[in-house]
Nucleic acid binder design. Sequence first.
DNA 1: CAGTGGTCTAGACCACTCG
DNA 2: GAGTGGTCTAGACCACTGT
Lengths: 255, 255
Amino acid sequence: MAARYQQIAQELREAIRQGEYAIGTLLPSEGELAARYAVSRGTVRQAVAALEQDGSVAARQGARRVVLGEVPTHSFAEMQSFSMWATSRGHRPGADVLSVEVGAARQEEADRLRVNVGEDVLRLQRVRTLDDEPVMLERSFFPGLVAEHILAMDLTMGSITEQLTALGFVHAHGDHLIDAVSATTLEARLLGVRRGSPLLRQRWLASSPTGQPLAWSEDSYRHDAVIISVRNSMSANTLARLSGRDTTSGSPARG
Amino acid sequence: MAARYQQIAQELREAIRQGEYAIGTLLPSEGELAARYAVSRGTVRQAVAALEQDGSVAARQGARRVVLGEVPTHSFAEMQSFSMWATSRGHRPGADVLSVEVGAARQEEADRLRVNVGEDVLRLQRVRTLDDEPVMLERSFFPGLVAEHILAMDLTMGSITEQLTALGFVHAHGDHLIDAVSATTLEARLLGVRRGSPLLRQRWLASSPTGQPLAWSEDSYRHDAVIISVRNSMSANTLARLSGRDTTSGSPARG
DNA sequence: CAGTGGTCTAGACCACTCG
DNA sequence: GAGTGGTCTAGACCACTGT
């Protein structure tokens, strides 16, 4: 089913996990791997490129690749969906709907979702829970394109992202802005924390394979509920540090 | 100097920035680009792969690539160094040294920096300023390997990262843990905010091309000073959401 | 210096999108 | 069905690492 290079990449990941290639040791050369798997060197390079992307091996021209270590695998879908994330970690996700409405897009919503001002957008506010404990306040905005489908869903459980995917609206890209904010009186009450308590805010735009925005959301987490992990490297950096004053009300990369 | 595919990638980025390829439109096919630049299709694929990595174009099998938009370019070095970041944004970076000491590694430090308990580590605490205004509190830890070099530096200005690089200690990988915390009384005083005020905390490990840890740092930013931006996609995800209680005192991916 | 990864070529076939 | 991107091959040369 999967491509040969993906199979090889998976076998190498497994071998690292099993300790067959210990941390700090060298991977076999491309030539050796090509012979072992009976593929061309190009295919081997595709496989090891995937591991470099993961961050589990490092390459330097002229020297064999170094095994950096096993990397906790998080699927893209898990990052986009609170429900899938919670479930995969053994928790029971839930949602209390605070409000849901369809209305005319305001300027900022239009910018984010790349629709025209005045077109229909769906606004949804929910308190998200883990094992019935409130941990996150979610303010989501959807373009008219997907609004009717969402209105037909049970919003108190299950993943909107997952259900949209089943309908053919695949989430392929994500842009995230992460900062810290103070809980307002309302937010504090909904999350069961004190007013002014720190919240980790993650504002993100999800888009389809063609770049069409599918959802914009502002998620404010209780500071003790979540930590965000990011890996980067010289050859693959998608991480940036923005000035607070410049961009607090600005747009994300593709907003 | 640079590889041909990198030159082509740069020209394509420039063309997108100039609006030659508008957002939402299609990129020329690989064949057309190969003819235009007089290179093989393989080289074109390396070039457009770089743009996909940036997140500025999206690929789907069977259809031409879609232009997603111009992406703000942040070098890896800019992410690793407060000084370089500040300078590139037109601000004047500074540092007040609170303490600097060499001591025997405790368990947690040893785990992070991959040294043995009891070996020398360098501990450094600084208040980082932007145009003389305090914005970040930094607690850094360095392995003995680089300690003597750092002790010889002027720690009130300039970039440790940059100076280490000049000495051959290249920062090639980064692991970041991002969360929100409350300012303690001390932190509040040093940063000029109220006690309990939200801080955006970024804990990160930098390692060399061979995976050798070079620095571990806990950086706590005034919440109004910084926003972190991350992009990910189905094909390239380095972003994860961790449970707060599980990992508050835990290690990063390769810690 | 030998070994290894980085780049590039030319050609082939398959899987998918779209009119 | 034509066009396009995804995969794979076989071979070549260069740049760099390590001894």
